[in-house]
Every structure is written in C-alpha cells, then in structure tokens.
C-alpha cells in the first residue's frame, strides 16, 4: 500500500533486554482517525516516540508519504526533521513551554514553517515583518479554534488542565502537519471536557485535512470517533479493525476491555 500517509513495517524497539515494541506493522491513510489502545506498558507511547524520532527504532522501518512530496523513510531522523515532514504530536504528560504565553507556545509551532534568522530578527526587512505578522495571525486563529482565545496572553503554566491539553493540540497544529499524533488527549479531563474533545478532534480532522493517530484509554471517546483501532499488548499488535470488530474481539476483551464493555 504505497498511498499510505504513514507506513510502519516490522517496527521493533528494544531497551536492553526489554522488547517494548515487537514487530508492529500498521498503515495510516490521509484524513483518517485511528486509535491505538492497549493496557498500560503495552508500548503505545514507545511506538509514538519511535515515530516522532525521540527514539531510534532498533528494527523495522517507518515511511511517510506527505501530500505533494515523495515518500521517505523517517526512522532514525532527528525529531525536528520528522516534524518538518508533517508529523506533529502532543505528550502524555503535558509538555508546554510553561514560562511562555499561550500565544507564544503556538507561535513556536510555526518555527519550522518560517525562516527569519538572527539578522532578520534584529533588523527586520519587509519580508521578516510580514512573516512575523502572519505567525501572530495564524497563532491567534489556532487558539480561537481550540477555544483558548481569551488565554492568549496568559502564561501557559497557569492555564487550567483541560486548557493546557487543548493548547498542546493548537501548538502541534501550528506546524501544519498532515498527521497529528495525540498521546492520551483526554487524560485527566472530566466527562464534559472529554465530550467537547470528541467534537474538537473531528473538527480538526475536517477543517485541517489532517489524519489523526491517538492513544487513549477513554473507550467512549475511542469508539465514538475512530474509524479504525489497533490494539497493542506486550509490544505486539493483537488486533486491528473497526470499533465494532474490536469491541467484539475475544482477544481484545481478554487483554484489555474486560467483560463489562462487551455487554
């Protein structure tokens, strides 16, 4: 399948004697919402870290085929190169730039799409000024998109928890990705906030034409919005399919979902 946006084949990640990810192969197509579920310690975040270049995988390969660009292998590339190729992520434990304002956090996301250098910053020409204006405008728009416009000048570390999660999404979107990786976006949110997150994720996919791969434990959210689900256990993919198929898969029920979800 060469038209896959993200194509992972036989991905393996060893930490010493521990095999955290074991021969995982999966594909993601443009505009899809795909969930990655599994028990704690199954290797979901490790898989994310391999895809985004935090770790260098010990085996297998990862390729991306961003639109209008030729596909290329990304395993082993440094994280910023991978982001430039159109993959953006959020973190399980929120990693905002706490001392910077919400707006500045989003503006930082524009870094890899802008070019102003040292000299251009000190003595900005018309092009540099225009670029800065565009960065400000685009960042405001993204903040509005996730409903954080009123927090623009607030220091990120002071934002309420749910707002910090949404700010991370806005910051990731500022890199204009074709694939957005969300690591437990609903963690720590109340049911009301989680329901709003459903809409937000679907809206982001529709408006920005971005595929979404998310790790999540909130099954209501996962079953509601994902088109396909991959289940990971002990680093291995044990099932892949539609929400309906996954819900009824005996292996998944045993490993992760438990009986009550089956009913």
């Amino acid at each position: 399948m060469t038209d896959a946006l993200l194509d992972i084949r036989g991905l393996t990640m060893d930490f010493g004697g521990l095999r955290a990810v074991d021969g995982v192969s999966l594909q993601l197509f443009p505009g899809e919402i795909v969930a990655l579920i599994g028990p704690n310690g199954a290797g979901k975040t490790t898989l994310f870290n391999c895809i985004t270049g935090v770790y260098r995988p010990t085996g297998g390969e990862i390729r991306v085929n961003p639109p209008k660009q030729s596909g290329r292998r990304i395993d082993g590339l440094p994280p910023h190169r991978i982001t430039t190729l159109g993959l953006a992520r959020t973190f399980q434990n929120i990693r905002l730039f706490n001392g910077m304002t919400a707006l500045e956090n989003v503006m930082l996301g524009r870094h890899c799409r802008t070019t102003t250098g040292l000299f251009g910053a000190i003595v900005p020409g018309p092009a540099a000024r225009r670029q800065e204006q565009e960065t400000i405008a685009a960042s405001f728009a993204l903040l509005e998109g996730v409903g954080l416009a009123q927090y623009a000048d607030e220091v990120a570390g002071n934002l309420p928890y749910g707002a910090q999660r949404r700010l991370e999404i806005a910051r990731a979107l500022a890199t204009t990705p074709s694939l957005l990786l969300l690591d437990e976006p609903a963690a720590g949110m109340n049911p009301q906030e989680t329901r709003e997150l459903d809409d937000l994720i679907v809206r982001i996919r529709d408006e920005q034409q971005v595929a979404i791969l998310l790790i999540e434990h909130d099954m209501r959210l996962v079953m509601n919005i994902s088109e396909r689900i991959h289940v990971l256990e002990y680093g291995k993919l044990i099932a892949s399919g539609t929400p309906l198929a996954i819900r009824n898969d005996p292996k998944v029920i045993e490993a992760y979902l438990g009986e009550e979800c089956h009913a």
Binding site: T52, G53, V54, P78, P79, H80, T83, T84, A88, R89, F91, R95, L96, F97, N98, G99, M100, L108, G109, H111, C112, R113, R171, A172, A174, T175
Partner: peptide, 12 residues
C-alpha cells in the same frame, strides 16, 4: 523550558 517538546515542535 523543555528541550524535548522543543524538538518535537520542529525546532532544530
């Protein structure tokens, strides 16, 4: 503020 997040946001 955060080197890992910084790299993940596309900063070299």
């Amino acid at each position: 503020e955060d080197e890992i997040a910084c790299a993940a946001m596309g900063v070299d």
